[in-house]
Structures are given as structure tokens and as C-alpha cells.
Design a protein around this nucleic acid. Structure first.
Lengths: 195, 195
DNA sequence: GTCTATACCCAGATAGAC
DNA sequence: GTCTATCTGGGTATAGAC
């Protein structure tokens, strides 16, 4: 089999299994079985189990950060920018389902691996994009100033990064739809003003 | 040492370590070290590692469910009831920090243990209390009916059950304060209506 | 009730034949 | 590049002395 293809296979199967169990509970042999080779063969592609994990998160973080950079460059008004950031979060969560799961669930462990791989700064860029968007929203008066911006940011994070647990996008429910719903709940609120 | 006290110690230290790493990544020997005994001694109190985990979650779920039952019995109006449910969630998250962490982070694994311990029904009661509160809010017109109630519920869950990651209560920031903030964001929204 | 010692297993990783 | 076989360490759990 083509080396690049096999490497891809190893990463994809690993991501699926890591997402189900924890990293520690997943064995090299289980990954090898899922790929259809013997465990020793994996070591021709990656030097260790951690290296597989690091590579998975590297791909994910780099793509996510790149999309956020492109968006920030468009300089949308704060609330529109927040909705676009939310869409990016949901889309990458779906595309990198396994990586997202381990990145959020085993954050401490992953952070260590990312620091070792010199990627901590890249990983923090998206956080900064959110912080700035919210701060600008408060500054220009479109957002209330009586709720701590950091609290709002953390609330949005928790909703966005765990949405894949209960939401599956389809033809009539896109990630952009859910992003719009989330932002309307956070911005407009659930109170019924119609009556 | 008093047996009950030692048992308590084992549970408390286990919860702390499980919260840091995953359950699979925590060893019996690490728990024994933290307690200050040899690993063999733990087996005088619990038959297995899983038994420790199950007991931790049992205490947590039973207390949480009891509090929700008491609240539901008070029959508050929907939005007030949601705020009270939020306070309960935040308070128990803080009091059972380790149990909350593993319950949310290793939900699949925990669910298996709870089914084996015949506690799955108890674990689902709080979910039902939330569902009913939201449904009544929509029915009596206090909440918008153009956002899927289930989506709202999942969003609230993600915020509430992960709040302990970034929030620490103190004299001037209580859990009731954060519950009020979370509910006002979800109900009133972040849009600035003052200007 | 706790310690010492250890059985037993399975993990990650390696070496060499093919 | 993959398989077979295996090393080595560390995991859960147990047994018996104290």
C-alpha cells in the first residue's frame, strides 16, 4: 500500500478510537487491528503513540488557526465575526471529530504535547480572535458591558466545542444554522418578546 | 486509622487524581501514594479500581438527584426554576469536583458502570427536570418557541457542567451569582438595549 | 489494617526474517 | 513494508506475614 495512504489510515483510525475512549485506554494493538496491520508496522510510520496523537492535533490546530486568521483579516463587525468564528468552530469540530474530542477532553495532556512540539502559540491564536471580537463588541456598544467578557467567552467555548456531542449537521441543518442559533440565543436571548 | 475515615480519604484522593488525568491513566499505586498507604491496602476497602469510580459517581448522582427532586417539588415558575437548577448544577460541580469531571469527560465509560450498578434511571432524573422546565417555559409563553428546546437544553448543559473549568466561587462571586449570569445571558441575551 | 512480596497480564516498543 | 517473535516495564490484583 502507498505509504502516504497508510499513514493517513493510521491517523484516521486512531482519531476515531481516541474519540471513543481516552488516549490512555487506547492501545497500539487496537489501532493496528483497525488499520489491518500488525502493531509493529505502525512504528514504521510513527515513532510512538504520542507522536500519532501530536500529529492529529497538529493538523487540527493548524487548519483551525488558518481559518481564524483568514476570518480576522476580513474585519467584520463584532457580532457577525462572532457568528463566523462559531461556524468555523462547528465545522472544524465535525471535520476533525476525533481531534476535537481529545483536544477538549484531555486538554492538560494535549497541552504538554503541543508545548513539546512548539505549537502552543498557534493553539492560542483562535482564543485571541474571540477575545478581541467580544472586546470590540463591548467597546462599540453592540454588547452589554455588565457581563464579564471572559465569562461570555468561556460560555461560548463550552457550547461550541461540545456541540458535536449532540448535533449532527445535515442538508437542512448546517453548521452555519447552528452557529446562527447559538449566537442568537447568546445575543438576543431566549425571552419571548413577541407577546 | 478509623476505617470510615480511610475509606473517605481513598475516595477523595481518587477523585482529585481522576479529575486531573483520565481514569485509565490513573494507577492504583498513585492513589495509594496519595493516601499514604501501600497499594494492597486499598483492596481492603474496594474490590477494584472500577468500584472506587462507581462509588464516587454514586454519591454524586444521588446527591444531585435529591436536590433536583426537592426543587421540582417547589413548583417555581419555569425561568426561576431554571435558575435554581443552574445553581444546583454549579454547586454540586464544585462540591463534587472530581466526580463531575469524570462524569462529563468519560460519559460513555461511566454510563456502563452506572448501568451495572443499577443507577442509570436515577442519573436521568435531572435531565428530565430540565426538559420539563424548558417545555413549560415555552408553553406558558415566557420562552421563545423558535429555538429547539433540546438545543437550548444541551447548550445549558455544556455551559453548566464545564463551568468549574474556568470559574471558582468566592465570597463575592457565588455559584448563585454565576447561575444568575448564565440564565440572564441565555434568557435576556447579550445585546445592549440601553443605548 | 497494613506491609512485603509477588503472580499474572498486557502495554509500548524493538529486532530480524521475509 | 509487513510479519513474527519477543523484550521490558508497569499495571491490577492477590497472598500471607505481622
Amino acid at each position: 500500500m502507498d505509504p502516504q495512504e497508510r499513514r493517513r489510515q493510521i491517523l484516521d483510525r486512531s482519531a476515531e478510537i481516541f474519540a471513543e475512549k481516552s488516549i490512555a485506554a487506547t492501545t497500539i494493538r487496537q489501532i493496528a487491528d483497525a488499520v489491518g496491520v500488525y502493531s509493529g508496522a505502525l512504528y514504521h510510520y510513527f515513532p510512538s503513540k504520542d507522536a500519532i496523537v501530536t500529529e492529529l492535533i497538529r493538523e487540527y490546530i493548524e487548519d483551525l488557526t488558518a481559518r481564524c486568521r483568514d476570518l480576522v483579516a476580513r474585519s467584520l463587525p463584532p457580532i457577525e465575526r462572532m457568528e463566523a468564528l462559531a461556524t468555523i468552530a462547528l465545522e472544524t469540530s465535525a471535520e476533525y471529530h476525533g481531534a476535537t474530542a481529545i483536544w477538549r477532553r484531555e486538554h492538560h495532556y494535549m497541552r504538554k504535547l503541543l508545548i513539546a512540539a512548539d505549537m502552543a502559540d498557534t493553539a492560542d491564536e483562535m482564543e485571541e480572535a474571540w477575545r478581541v471580537a467580544i472586546a470590540e463588541g463591548v467597546a462599540d456598544g453592540s454588547l452589554r458591558d455588565d457581563v464579564d467578557p471572559h465569562t461570555l467567552q468561556e460560555m461560548l467555548y463550552d457550547v461550541l466545542w461540545h456541540a458535536s456531542r449532540w448535533y449532527t449537521a445535515g442538508p437542512e441543518h448546517t453548521h452555519a444554522d447552528l452557529a446562527a442559533t447559538i449566537v442568537t440565543v447568546f445575543v438576543d436571548g431566549m425571552r419571548n418578546r413577541a407577546r
